[in-house]
Design a binder for these strands. Sequence first.
DNA 1: TAAAATTAGTTTGTTGACAATTTCTATCAA
DNA 2: TTGATAGAAATTGTCAACAAACTAATTTTA
Lengths: 240, 240
Amino acid sequence: MPTQPIATLSERQTLSEQVYNDIKEAIIAGELIQGAKITEDELAKKYGISRGPLREALRRLESIRLLIKIPHAGMRVVTLTPEMIEEIYIVREALEGMSARLAAERMTDEEIEDLRNLLVRHSSNIDKSDGKQYFQREGDLDFHFRIAQASNNQWLMDLLSSELYQLLRMCRHRTSQAPARPTKALTEHKQIVEAIASRDAELAEMLMRRHISGAWKTVEILLKEELSEGALQNDTVTKQ
Amino acid sequence: MPTQPIATLSERQTLSEQVYNDIKEAIIAGELIQGAKITEDELAKKYGISRGPLREALRRLESIRLLIKIPHAGMRVVTLTPEMIEEIYIVREALEGMSARLAAERMTDEEIEDLRNLLVRHSSNIDKSDGKQYFQREGDLDFHFRIAQASNNQWLMDLLSSELYQLLRMCRHRTSQAPARPTKALTEHKQIVEAIASRDAELAEMLMRRHISGAWKTVEILLKEELSEGALQNDTVTKQ
DNA sequence: TAAAATTAGTTTGTTGACAATTTCTATCAA
DNA sequence: TTGATAGAAATTGTCAACAAACTAATTTTA
């Protein structure tokens, strides 16, 4: 029984695309550790392809800032320093703020209803899940993604979904960080949806920006704690 | 006489990079016309390189949105529709607004002084130049670029300088459009610098956003005029 | 005659080999 | 022991040929 209809245009992914996705997930999940050197031959063998398509995949990963390249000297997995993470949150505030503004102007009533329902589900998840933060995180990104979609701005959407959200996912893996404020975040999400529902673009933007800069402040504190712990550990190591 | 010092690290560009820059400028200048199909073999011959490095260059051009690719079916030069141009200005408003905010917080006094001097030069250029819009345009981008730099946010800077400003340059070539409001723009630039100088981040952001959305409104009108002219021309052609 | 199917031709995707550059290692001099 | 230097190994950059996919033109069929 052929489950797939015959495609006029190849729905089969190109090797380069497959490997691009595989490596992307490997980086985000931390399997390829930060700062690690990438050697083309090694990776090509690992994925069983030649260097041509692999290089193309690597180039794409470079363009979404998951890899950093130095000509003739190779590529490394990006290292998410606290400074970089701050940069990410700053760009995010600008783009998602605008995204919320546009969503307030352009989102259909149906989409708004869907978004409300999504938040209801999140609400019940918070009560149930004892530590199942994974779903909370994905849910969080889902919320933001839907607003990006509603902005009806292709570039904005691409920027957010194919670059920024990937980096965010990586941050979350890195700091193994609990959002730590699920109920607060949920409340803020609800406020944002209501601003959108009442077509108040100004307010939607303001709330979204506050939401994100608030998230950054929480992350910043976590990073500082982590850093001082790290320093402590380093001390111990040095003293050995 | 060796004018170049001996380099430890190859300052010689890779073929891929050279061709990337060449094609980029060709697209922006309109030598490669919008919507035109790109065939790898043809371009490779034209630039005298093989398809390998050419493909890499094309991938990079795709990542900065100057080319659009459909797997197995080839690439085309991007077509700047009015909708796309609007998207560009919207993203620009968000990013440059944030950029101005950060600049107000982080720009050094020296940089501010330089920026003031730049505007003085622009001022005198406006008086002199009768229609030398080229320099005005480049000057305009220079102003915005310096603020992006002062944001001290690498990602923001990259996004603006290597993606957005290239698209803007292309828009300007496309619509052969006079900024049409050089003195007004200059006044706004001055206001922005003064907001930065007084370290008023809120105001700097607000003024920058107003400056850009104002620029969009002017462009929008120009595009509509162009469109109706185009429709008129089409009519004529159809009637022939 | 018009629509569908087949086939030829063009273009992209992939491969493995070769050239150029960098990095590492071992040697030598201070 | 330290520093520089030269050669060897490893890695990236480039090339040209082959395979797979799409496009367009021709033929076949209703």
